[in-house]
Simulated assay, not measured.
Amino acid sequence: MRPSSALNNLRWWFTLLLVLPLLAQAQDPLPSWKDGPSRKSIEAFVAAVTTEGGKDFVPEAERIAVFDNDGTLWSEQPMYFEVLFAMDEVRRLAPQHPEWKEQQPFKAVLEGDHKALAESGTEGMMKIIGATHTGMSTDEFIALSRSWLAKSVHPRSQKPYTEMIFQPMRELLAFLRVNGFKTYIVSGGEVAFMRAFAEEVYGVPPEQVIGTNFASQFQDKDGKLSIQRLPKLLHNDDGPGKPVSIDTIIGRRPILAFGNSDGDLQMLQWTMAGEGKRFAGLVHHTDATREWAYDRESKIGRLDKALDAAKAGNWTVVDMAGEWSRVYPFEHN
């Protein structure tokens, strides 16, 4: 063989060695999922409901998939990210509200008193959310949320919050959409806050984001039109509120639902109570090294009753530590 031919062959093999792994990854829609029970159950379910002529076939219009956000699509420790946003807003707005120095729970936020803040409970947190999420237009609030997300970083990873999303779940969303599913976020988070980033990071458009929402009203101020956000809670999209939202907004019962906590239990139950083949999944936070490990005793994202229901109903419980080769997009497989 001539030297030039040998060199060309060597180059060809070297190129092939570089390209083959890339081709394999391109052909694998779930590269961050290990070949374990959760991946197998997901792939088997999707194959069953998308195979025309099969006994479990579901028409595209009925392929509705719903996902919780906090703890399911992105991390939720050491505190829900939206709460961290609200607390930063309290600090930013404090000069305009001198009374907050003596009013709880605002006083606790300004003084960094975590004990007093915890003692204020859900009522206290709703006061903080109401004060920081209303009294402006929807457009103004979304712009405010995007500004915070653009400049703020997670206290442990020092990464932007929008990089603290779970790469395997993002792959799953894309995999479902390729197979004719319509993917929705159904979360306890405030709807406009999630709409500020959901399309960019998850590929879920605003009209497919459902969450807790405040009352609002149309305003025409000297010809300037806006939707003003009012300090009155309209719907708490958590627990039993999730099936109500699904029924009201989507109008179809999902055939797939994913959550991670007891706040998702009723959504999972509602999904599984329908006819035909169905899928319920839980992200189980078992990875203390790459993420966090918590379940039954956690004050954030407690997974107790839903874990029992999953075992009783043979739902898919994803072992994050054992079944995900990568947790975040910034990690390498």
Rank of each mutant, 00 (worst) to 15 (best):
S4T: 13
S4K: 13
S5Q: 15
S5D: 15
A6E: 13
R11T: 12
T15C: 14
V19Y: 06
A24L: 14
D28C: 12
D28H: 07
P29L: 05
L30K: 03
A44V: 07
T51Y: 01
D56H: 08
P59K: 01
I64C: 02
D68A: 01
E76S: 02
Y80Q: 07
Y80N: 04
E82S: 10
E82V: 12
V83R: 14
V90T: 11
R91Q: 11
R92G: 05
L93V: 01
Q96R: 13
E102D: 14
L110P: 03
E111F: 04
E111W: 01
L117W: 04
S120A: 13
K127N: 13
I129K: 08
T132D: 05
T132G: 04
T132C: 10
H133Q: 14
D139E: 15
F141Y: 15
I142L: 12
A150V: 12
A150W: 12
S152C: 12
P155Q: 10
R156Q: 15
S157L: 12
K159G: 07
K159H: 13
L172E: 08
G180A: 09
G188L: 00
F193P: 00
E199W: 04
E199Y: 04
G203N: 06
Q208E: 05
G211H: 07
Q217T: 13
Q219D: 10
Q219I: 15
K224V: 13
K224N: 10
K232A: 12
N236V: 15
G241C: 08
K242Y: 07
V244Q: 12
S245R: 14
T248E: 11
R252C: 00
D264M: 07
D264I: 09
Q266C: 04
T271K: 05
A273H: 08
F279A: 01
F279P: 03
L282F: 11
L282G: 02
H284D: 15
D287Q: 02
E291D: 10
W292K: 10
W292N: 09
W292Q: 06
R296S: 10
E297A: 06
K305L: 13
A306Y: 06
D308W: 06
W315G: 08
S325V: 15
Y328T: 05
H332Q: 14
